[in-house]
């Protein structure tokens, strides 16, 4: 056991070692179908960086190109599936999303840039996935989508895609958002797991460097759900859990209080970046 511990410490030490080669984000601009995206923004007050940077800037040229054209972006397939779900009647009330919200291009514009929001009913922050479930159970008489299933990611992506290009700006003044932000911040800086890593260990202290062959970004969430070349369409809470798993820690459940606090805080860290849903990442 002692050996294991030593090995773990050595690994963790390796991650902070200065031997990492530097590789800065690229000097490139992103237009999606000709629409300009903000991939660099002045950091909100209280951020340790001067500039917040989209993960797009940390990718290789071929991956960046996949995002420039919505036709070539494989993430647009699930977004189009989400468009079908938007108008699909489900549940005992005989309603679809469109029954109440009409044209998503109008009614959902801005949603992807302003969630999570305060939800007075549950006395917690609510994200797009949970808002969909709230509508489904309370308005449509339908079952809540289980995590990552049933069309949850497709519909979430379709809704967020309506805000493509809009800068992320969440309202921390609503309800208790500020205290959830504080909890999220604490989690962000808390080292966890056998590898003893916090979110900040990789995405703040070592952003721009390589972890093996992977270029570490600031860990921004403005493009979720994302299309990962490695594993296909991926939700934010799935990614959170994947990262936490890789520190060899116990994973909190999707949409748990911990991960909702983290989503609130990490979304704020990307203030000013364009919504890129569906972004393309390795």
């Amino acid at each position: 056991m002692k050996r294991l511990l030593i090995a773990g410490v050595a690994l963790a030490a390796g991650l902070t070692a200065a031997s990492w080669s530097m590789a800065e984000p690229v000097d490139d601009t992103l237009e999606i179908d000709g629409k300009p995206m903000i991939t660099r923004a002045k950091a909100p007050e209280g951020m340790p960086f001067d500039e917040v940077l989209s993960g797009w800037l940390y990718r290789e040229a071929e991956t960046r190109d996949l995002e420039r054209d919505t036709f070539e972006n494989p993430g647009m397939v699930p977004v189009e599936d989400g468009e079908v779900l938007w108008s699909k009647v489900d549940g005992t009330a005989g309603k679809s999303c469109a029954t109440c919200h009409g044209d998503a291009a109008e009614s959902m514009k801005g949603i992807g840039a302003t969630f999570p929001k305060w939800d007075a009913d549950s006395n917690k922050p609510i994200n797009v996935e949970l808002q969909i479930n709230k509508c489904r159970t309370e308005q449509m008489g339908a079952e809540a989508y289980p995590f990552d299933k049933g069309g949850q990611n497709e519909l979430t992506a379709y809704i967020k895609h309506q805000s493509l290009g809009l800068p992320v700006q969440i309202d921390l003044a609503e309800g208790d958002m500020q205290s959830w932000w504080e909890q999220g911040k604490e989690l962000y800086y808390t080292r966890t797991g056998q590898l003893d890593l916090a979110c900040a260990s990789c995405h703040e202290a070592n952003a721009g460097k390589f972890i093996r062959a992977d270029h570490l970004s600031q860990g921004q969430v403005n493009g979720f759900p994302v299309y990962r070349l490695k594993s296909g369409f991926t939700s934010l809470h799935n990614r959170f859990r994947g990262c936490i798993r890789d520190t060899r820690a116990e994973m909190p459940k999707a949409f748990s209080d911990e991960l909702m606090a983290l989503e609130t805080y990490v979304t704020w860290r990307g203030t000013g970046l364009s919504v890129e849903t569906p972004a393309v990442r390795p």
Binding site: F71, M76, V77, E80, D81, G151, E154
Partner: peptide, 9 residues
């Protein structure tokens, strides 16, 4: 979910 093919002509 079976999506319709995407085509650009």
């Amino acid at each position: 979910m079976a999506s319709k093919p995407r085509i650009k002509v």
